[in-house]
Every structure is written in C-alpha cells, then in structure tokens.
C-alpha cells in the first residue's frame, strides 16, 4: 500500500471534522523517542503539532504525549499511561522492537486500541494499526538512483547510521539495488546519524580515496557533515551526495539545482501525524479501520522539491 503522506493527512482531516459531536471523552496516549537527533526532532514537532490540531477539532479528547530516551523508560511510561491516565488508545513508536513487544501486547490485550509507528513489533498481529516508513525502499530508492546515474566502475562510499535494524534494512535495500550495476562500494562506516562524526568520517574518506564519485550519506544530518568536509577539500565537483529523510536545507539545495546534491530520499517524520489522526478516526468512527500503512520512500528531485518543503518545520 503506497500513499503520499499529504494525501492521507488531507483525507483524514476532512473525515474527522464532522465526527466531533458523536465522540465520548476518550484519552489517547502517545509515546515516542526523545528528540536526540534531527529526524526524531521532526517527529516530535509533528506529534506536538498534530496533538494541538486534534485538541481543537476534538475538545472532548485528552492526549498524553511522552518522549523517552531509552526502551526501559518507555516501558515505564506506557505502564504509567495505562495505570494513571486510563488511556483508550495508544500510539507508540517503539524504541526497540524486542523489549517493547511484551508490554505493548499486554496493553493491547486489555482492550486498548494500539497503533504502532515505524518500528514493527517482534510479534505479528498485536496492533490494530501499523503506520511505517519503508527502510528497504529507502535504501533501494537511493540505490536505484545511483545505478541509473553512475557509470560502471564508479566509486561510492557509504555512511551508515547507528548500528540497528533500521540501518541494516536500508543498507540491504541499497546493496540489492546496486547489484549487477558494476558500481564499486569502496567503504562503509558508521556516521551514527551525527553531523560531526560524518564530517570527520568524510574527511578521512577523502584522504583515503583519490577518486570518489558518489556518497550515500543515508541521512541528511550525515549529508550536512559530509558536504562540509567535501567543500573543505574543494572536491564538490567530483562527486554527488545523496542523503535521506527530506531535511529543509537539502530540499532547498535540490530545488536550486545544486550539482553536488541532485536528489534526496524521503523518510517522512510526519508519519506520526498520520498515525495519530488515523487513531482518532478509529476511535471516533464506527467504520472499521485497521491494517498496515507502509509509506514508501520517494525520490525528491528538482521537479517535485516544492512538495516536500515545510517552512516552519525545525527539520
């Protein structure tokens, strides 16, 4: 199932409006990771924005938003929500799959509506609704672009993120897309989705390889660091950099036809909005709603860049 986020949001916005009066006083709990890096920051931004919006359209509904720095704290948060706030629905982006599966399963079994966002649980069929980005498609999209735009024998360096399932899926997708293209991946190291780490990593790549034709930074924060190192070395014209997620700054560069940053790959943090809105809809309407919404990654090009630019987003 592939949808663009904007379309979904518009659709639900239109649907939820008239349903206000029929709803009873319900509480929705939302638990997401703390804003420790750019993408999570944007996730927080969109979650808060959506909660504000929902409060206006559904004055009788309560929202409990918690952000957590680790799995352990997330479990406690969930327990608190159930025990002290008596939530009717839960929107959760699990910090890690395995440790959160049990606690979320128990909450689901107690009759609470559960929407899982982005990171799937270790066991299938627990949640009522699953909204996620597609990490494999994220890697594939970048890989496909490289396969189509680079020549055989061109050299690519890869910056991976924090070692995790997300990172593994992305890299697997990327490698699968490159297979048979004759493009040479010369190095892969972890930039930990951190600008500073990416900067030093790129500096060292530049010292190490006289020829680099493309950098898959796999994340826009990493791309920022890599670009700074490339411009320090004065090698902007030798290579292209493809990041990921759709950061404002990157989208801007693409729409300005920047030669070093020709495209970007989306992994929209606004998926949390979709999840919250659909959960509200699920609670308020009698229409059966559920299943799995996987939002595929898209390639941002100078042609469609305008659609991905959010003026007031922090990211």
């Amino acid at each position: 199932m592939t949808k663009t986020l904007i379309a979904t949001t518009a659709l639900i916005g239109a649907l939820t409006g008239p349903l206000v009066s029929t709803a009873m006083a319900e509480t929705i709990g939302i638990s997401i990771p703390a804003a420790t890096h750019g993408w999570a920051g944007a996730l927080n931004y969109h979650a808060k924005r959506t909660v504000e919006m929902m409060k206006e359209t559904h004055p009788d509904m309560d929202f409990v938003l918690t952000t957590t720095p680790d799995s352990g704290r997330q479990v406690s948060d969930l327990e608190d929500m159930v025990a002290t706030r008596g939530i009717d629905a839960l929107v959760v982006l699990p910090f890690e799959s395995e440790p959160l599966t049990g606690p979320i399963k128990r909450i689901a079994e107690s009759g609470v509506w559960v929407t899982v966002v982005d990171r799937g649980l270790a066991q299938e069929g627990i949640e009522n609704l699953y909204v996620a980005g597609d990490n494999t498609s994220f890697g594939e999209t970048a890989g496909d672009y490289f396969a189509q735009n680079l020549a055989q024998g061109d050299k690519v360096v890869v910056m991976r993120g924090i070692p995790s399932t997300v990172d593994n899926e992305r890299v697997a997708g990327f490698e699968a897309a490159l297979e048979g293209s004759g493009i040479d991946v010369v190095a892969m190291d972890h930039g930990n989705w951190n600008r500073d780490t990416a900067f030093t990593l790129m500096q060292d790549y530049l010292s190490r390889f006289p020829q680099i034709d493309a950098v898959w930074a796999a994340d826009d924060d990493q791309a920022v660091g890599a670009l700074a190192a490339i411009s320090q070395a004065g090698r902007e014209d030798e290579m292209i950099v493809v990041g990921g997620a759709g950061m404002k700054e990157m989208v801007e560069r693409i729409s300005n036809n920047d030669k070093t940053v020709p495209v970007d790959v989306t992994y929209p943090p606004a998926m949390i909005s979709t999840a919250i809105e659909m959960t509200v809809l699920g609670l308020t309407s009698d229409a059966p709603l559920g299943g799995s919404f996987v939002i595929s990654s898209e390639l941002i090009t100078p042609d469609n860049a305008a659609d991905f630019y959010f003026e007031d987003s922090p990211y």
Binding site: A34, A35, G38, A40, A42, L43, Y45, R195, D221, P314
Partner: peptide
Amino acid sequence: ITWLADGGTLS
C-alpha cells in the same frame, strides 16, 4: 539545547 533547537538543529 534540545529545547532551544526545538528538537532539531540550530543553523
């Protein structure tokens, strides 16, 4: 710093 940057990046 997280609060100042609103969870994102200050540039």
